[in-house]
């Protein structure tokens, strides 16, 4: 299943926050969206998943939904969004309970995703007992449990310290190697974008427009920190963004992102 964004524009009150965004997200690729803060990256992601409606333009799905998908467009949130009163297994069960799968089937899915994300021994732990990295792994396991067609990842590593971030990036890479999931990955971190993105979409500052799309034609598994080619792309992206970021930094905020 592919996702097509057609002419998306949006205003908050009198402020134009997004102008004519056109983008295709194709099956099996990770599209990273980067841009200065306040450019509407997260808003765009909310449009894609149907949590908010743009003023103009539309988000289209093309092709059949993958078989057995319970929730084709599935988010992974920056702040994990785990229910603190449920255990790891309970948090995953939450998103399966409404589908009438039957107890055994739910238990089997939970078992399976916990094994795939290496969380089996944490199944009875409460979120507060886990580190930030582990919490985000739980959130990723929860997302996998509903067999998404596209994962919508909203700065999933931004709340983590840089060491944990490296570890989770490796996890995501190996997960992609195995499952070839489709993802739209919003971040402000250029290193994440060049490590995980098959394409990197650069947004301008408000009103957010697509400035350029950079294709990175390199296997995810070959990428690593300090790779010269990636470093070059990263500094190219930074050149594109620097002035925008500086101007955005000096703006007076009057809209919530």
């Amino acid at each position: 299943m592919d996702l097509l964004l057609r002419g998306i524009s949006h205003r908050y009150g009198g402020t134009e926050v997004m102008r004519d965004i056109n983008l295709d997200i194709r099956r099996g690729e990770i599209v990273c969206i980067i841009g200065p803060s306040g450019c509407g990256k997260s808003t765009l992601l909310r449009f894609i998943g149907g949590l908010e409606r743009p003023d103009a333009g539309e988000v289209l799905l093309s092709g059949p939904e993958p078989e057995g998908s319970l929730n084709p467009l599935t988010y992974v949130f920056q702040d994990f969004a785990l229910l603190p009163w449920r255990t790891v297994a309970g948090n995953i069960s939450l998103v399966l309970e409404d589908h009438g799968l039957g107890k055994q089937r739910v238990a089997a899915i939970i078992e399976d995703v916990l094994a795939r994300t290496g969380l089996s021994e944490f199944r009875e732990a409460l979120p507060r007992q886990l580190s930030g990295g582990m919490r985000q792994r739980v959130a990723i396991a929860r997302a996998l449990a509903v067999r998404p067609a596209v994962m919508l990842m909203d700065e999933p590593l931004s709340a983590l310290d840089s060491q944990t971030r490296e570890l989770l990036m490796d996890d995501l890479v190996s997960l992609w190697q195995r499952e070839r999931f489709t993802a739209c990955y919003v971040t402000h971190n250029l290193a994440e974008a060049v490590r995980l993105g098959h394409r990197v979409v650069v947004l301008s500052r408000r009103p957010g427009q697509i400035r350029t799309v950079v294709e990175i034609d390199m296997e995810l598994s070959e990428r690593g920190p300090g790779h010269p080619e990636l470093e070059a792309i990263q500094s190219q992206l930074w050149t594109l963004l620097r002035d925008e970021a500086r101007a955005a930094d000096r703006e007076i905020a009057d809209v919530a992102e």
Partner: peptide, 15 residues
């Protein structure tokens, strides 16, 4: 954000 999470996973209103 928890409510949004619920909505994004397609949970019903009553759920």
């Amino acid at each position: 954000t928890l409510v949004r999470m619920g909505q994004s996973f397609g949970l019903g209103w009553w759920s």
